[in-house]
Design a protein around this nucleic acid. Sequence first.
DNA 1: TGGAGCATGTAATGAGTTACATGATTGG
DNA 2: CCAATCATGTAACTCATTACATGCTCCA
Lengths: 177, 177
Amino acid sequence: MVCQGSGMTPSVNATAAALLGLLRDGPQSGYGLARRAQEELGDFWSVTRSQVYRELAGMAERGLVEVGDAGARDRRDYRLTDEGLAAFRGWLHADPGPDVVRIPLLLRLAFVEEVAPERLAELVAEQRSAHEQRLTRYRELEAAVQAAGVDRADTVTLRFGIRYEEAVLRWFDEDLG
Amino acid sequence: MVCQGSGMTPSVNATAAALLGLLRDGPQSGYGLARRAQEELGDFWSVTRSQVYRELAGMAERGLVEVGDAGARDRRDYRLTDEGLAAFRGWLHADPGPDVVRIPLLLRLAFVEEVAPERLAELVAEQRSAHEQRLTRYRELEAAVQAAGVDRADTVTLRFGIRYEEAVLRWFDEDLG
DNA sequence: TGGAGCATGTAATGAGTTACATGATTGG
DNA sequence: CCAATCATGTAACTCATTACATGCTCCA
C-alpha cells in the first residue's frame, strides 16, 4: 500500500512549500511571489522566478493552488487551496534534512599549496569584506526589529545569519593565514 | 574579441575543477575519483558519481583530460593533460563567488507560528544532535592531524567546519526557544 | 511621444540526486 | 560454488540559474 501525500516524505519540495507558505497571505502572481520570496526568505533560501513558475505549474496540476484568470501581460493570480494548505503543513512537520553548505573559497583552499600567495590574499580579502557587509546588515536589521518590539521568534533566522557570519569572520581572522 | 579560457570566468565549474585537482596525483578512474572526492572534499563539497562521469566526459571532449583504454568492467583511467592543468590553475585563481547555504530547518522556522510546538522540539533536537556529532568528528580529526604534525594550512578547511558547527550549536542553545 | 525602466513570463542550459544495472571478488 | 559485497558505470529525473522576449507606465 502506497502512502502518498501525508506520509513521512512530503508531497512538495522545500521551494514549493515556501511558496505555499507565502500564499497563505492571499492570492498572488508568480512575479509577486518571486519578489516576496527574495525579500523575506532570500537570505537563507534563494528562489528564482523560473523556479516559482515551474513549481506553481506543477502545484496547479496537483490541485494545491488554483489559477485565476489572465490579466494584463498574462498575469495570473494563484490561490492556495485546502489541499495546498494541507501539503504545506505536511511539509512543515516533516524531517527537514541536512544543511547544504557549499563554499567555493573552501574548495580552493583545499588546493591551497598551488595558489599564488598574492592572489590568495586578494581572494580572501574580497570574500571577507562581503561577509563583513552582510553581518553589518543583519545587525542593523536586528536592531530595527527589536526596536519595533517584535516577538523573539521572528528573529530566529536573523540570529542564525548573525551567528554564521560571526563564525566565518572569526575563521578568517584567527584560523586563516 | 572573445577571450575564452584564461579570462576572468574560468572554463570549468567548481566540481570539474576539483576533479582536475585530484587528477594531479595521477590517473584515476571515475569511480576512484568519486571515492576520493567524497573522502577528501565531501565535508564541504559534495560530488556524486553521476556528476563525476558527466564532467569527465565533458572535459575529455575539450581535451582537459585524456581517456585511457577500457579495462575490466569498462573501467577507464583519466589522465590530466597540460590544458587540464592550466584550466585548473585558471579556476583556482578566479573569483570564488558567494557561498551557497541552504538550511531546511531555517526555512521551516520562517513559518514557525504554524508549527506544532512538540513537533518543533523534535525537529530541532534531531538536527542539533546531527550537528553535535559532526563537531565531535571534526575535533577528533583535528586532534589526529595535529598529532601527525602537519602544516597548519592543511587544517584550514577543518577549522572552518569546527567554527561553523560551533556557531550552529550556540544558535541552537542560546537563540532558539 | 518616445525611451527608460519596471513587470511579467518563457526557454535553454547547467548542476545535482536517485535509482538502476551488472561485472568482479571473496569469504564461508 | 554460491551468496554477499564491492566496483563501476548509466539513465532518468529533479532542481536551479542565466538569458531572453515583450508588454506596460510614466515622466521629461
